[in-house]
Design a protein around this nucleic acid. Structure first.
Lengths: 354, 354
DNA sequence: GCGGCGTACTGTATCGATTTAGAACCGTTC
DNA sequence: GAACGGTTCTAAATCGATACAGTACGCCGC
């Protein structure tokens, strides 16, 4: 039989509470008694207070749940994700809290809901999930604080939003392209699937996309181009399998090897944009001259490759998400944080070739 | 007052157990009653069985703890780490288990020990920790299954080892360099600190290093070079602050800009080795001709840059670690897994310049 | 000799579920 | 009327700890 606080208390001849104090509040008992108790505990093979029991009693889990749909490998290939997690981990560490990664299956929805319901956490951070995923409803049902970068119908009053104005960000990027004379623009993204269907489907409208981030970013481009008289139907969109450099290159290949070639390619992440640049180089095309390329995120590699992109404060998003989660402000107004973004123009964009 | 199983049971007029069954074992009660119970639960705002209480009762946490010392950002900049975690997450997902990331401070040891003791987990996976860190003792004291890639004194009988023969791996790399005529060899690593001291200290012997992995890898090089008559004292070692490409470049700069220049630089990770290659290019030196470079891990980028390196199965290490953790074999012999490594010779190594 | 006070410890209630043994009832048959 | 094997549900025990009110006791000053 496994030893518990009671076992230790009985052998030493003190009460359970005193043994508890010996571990958690050393100032509440004499050093001698404490030493005796700890000695008895090691003699009995008692490993110290059970975290699960403590967690139940204290009503604190000491962890926040981070929801992903992507496989971890995809999630972490993106420096943006790493920076975000870094910020989140920083806040968590300050609050003596761990990060419980919950990689949720997109297909097995029951398993995903189960994982959410079983998670011993003090709150959830939604990282990148399609709006329709039932795990998000499960998160709401838990009634815990939630921090998310995606707005969604059915979000409860405890929800915090920490994000950026995604559409405004890409609108500024789109206006930049328009000002340079670009009218034949293509968009590459990795979460462009419509509702629950995956694959390179032709999109009727950005509004159909299941992922908030992609939907909003696409909307921004749509608006900027529409203002220049470029209709949605004349914009090519390519949905790729994952957020990898090779995926971006593959998508670009698809666009570049067909006529008419777009004069500008907008990628919804820098990783994809860097892949697009790879594809250009491979074909002897000059970025910013033959084809302009825009990314999103402004990861460190973007500066090195001269990529025009939208800067967003990744680590800060994570940090603020953690704060709002671990110490939710009472005033609902304080639970919405919209961080600034900035278009960073570099060499990868230039006037449209005539 | 927050509703519990009891609250729901009282309003419906059934017992607590029946409400529990309504959630966890639907086959144990009639569908009508179940529907009534669930309706009452939502009416009361009951969010479903509390995971902490369930965890206490079931004696299962549904998570495994992953120990790091590095900050998350460093941990995830390395594709090796990402691959390892991917494998681990795969095993975890199959067992319906999450990953609790515990980024432990090196300095604040009490906080690190506290984090380990408070972690609601079913086991621990030690990723990269110095041998002397008290958190490792805390892990042992918890009495849970542990999977580790580092052997260490004081490891309990439940410990599983999943790793590679680190020394043999670098010995083969060292022999390769020796066969090419290299005698002036430098080594770059990021965890070469002696015991608890950090900084670019001159090492008396590899055996002093606090990190198992670095220690063993260094030992392999030492043995290979010693066999060729090259003593430890004539090998330069450079300890860098983090496992980043820029760190590798900086360390290489230190080595290359001084006479006598080493004819070969061995890095203890590919990320560092790629940085070394950057530094060579910057100085107009040709890898494999002017200076040979060897890495470790064989991450995807290594192949693209023609880096000679030691391949190790990163994802497989993670996967096996997860398996051994979640379903520990009774036979101790099955708790040691040594995976194969392979020297991959590419263009970055060549004959030593005469 | 008594009230006041601080220290060191105890006892009980509580956290919110799961598990288990067993009660009540089903229609049928000896 | 009781024993059959089977469901559906109940009551009590269990999981392992923490919070908090309360008590015993020594010591102080008057």
């Amino acid at each position: 039989m496994r030893p518990t606080l009671q076992t230790v208390a009985d052998t030493v001849g003190v009460s359970r509470s005193t043994v508890s104090n010996a571990y958690s509040r050393p100032d509440q008992l004499s050093p001698e008694l404490r030493a005796r108790i700890l000695a008895a505990a090691t003699a009995l093979g008692y490993a110290g207070p059970d975290p699960a029991a403590r967690s139940l009693r204290k009503r604190r889990a000491g962890a926040i749940g981070v929801l992903f749909t992507a496989t971890l490998s995809y999630a972490f290939t993106d420096p943006y994700a790493v920076q975000f997690l870094r910020g989140l981990a920083g806040s968590a560490e300050q609050a003596r809290t761990g990060l419980l990664l919950l990689p949720l299956s997109i297909d097995d929805e029951a398993a995903a809901v189960g994982a959410v319901n079983d998670a011993v956490v003090d709150g959830f951070c939604v990282y990148c999930m399609p709006d329709w995923h039932p795990a998000l409803d499960a998160v709401q049902a838990r009634g815990l604080p939630v921090a998310s970068g995606q707005r969604r119908e059915g979000d409860g009053p405890l929800n915090a939003f920490v994000g950026i104005d995604e559409a405004a960000a890409t609108r500024s990027a789109g206006e930049h392209l328009v000002a340079l004379g670009h009218r034949r623009v293509a968009i590459v993204g990795d979460d462009l699937s419509v509702a629950r269907v995956t694959g390179p489907a032709r999109l009727a409208s950005p509004a159909d996309i299941g992922y908030y981030t992609s939907r909003e970013r696409l909307r921004g481009y749509q608006e900027a181009l529409a203002a220049a008289g470029v209709g949605w139907s004349s914009i090519s969109t390519v949905n790729v399998a994952g957020n990898g450099r090779a995926d971006g290159a593959e998508a670009a290949g698809y666009l570049l090897d067909r006529a008419p070639r777009p004069t500008a390619i907008a990628a919804l992440s820098d990783i994809l944009a860097l892949g697009v640049l790879d594809a250009l180089r491979e074909r002897g095309l000059r970025p910013g001259h033959d084809v302009s390329v825009v990314g999103f995120d402004d990861i460190p590699e973007a500066a090195a490759d001269g990529l025009t992109t939208v800067h967003q404060p990744a680590a800060e998003r994570g940090r603020r998400s953690g704060q709002l989660l671990l110490d939710p402000p009472t005033d609902p107004a304080d639970r919405t944080v919209v961080l600034p973004t900035k278009l960073v123009v570099r060499a990868s964009t230039g006037p449209a070739p005539s």
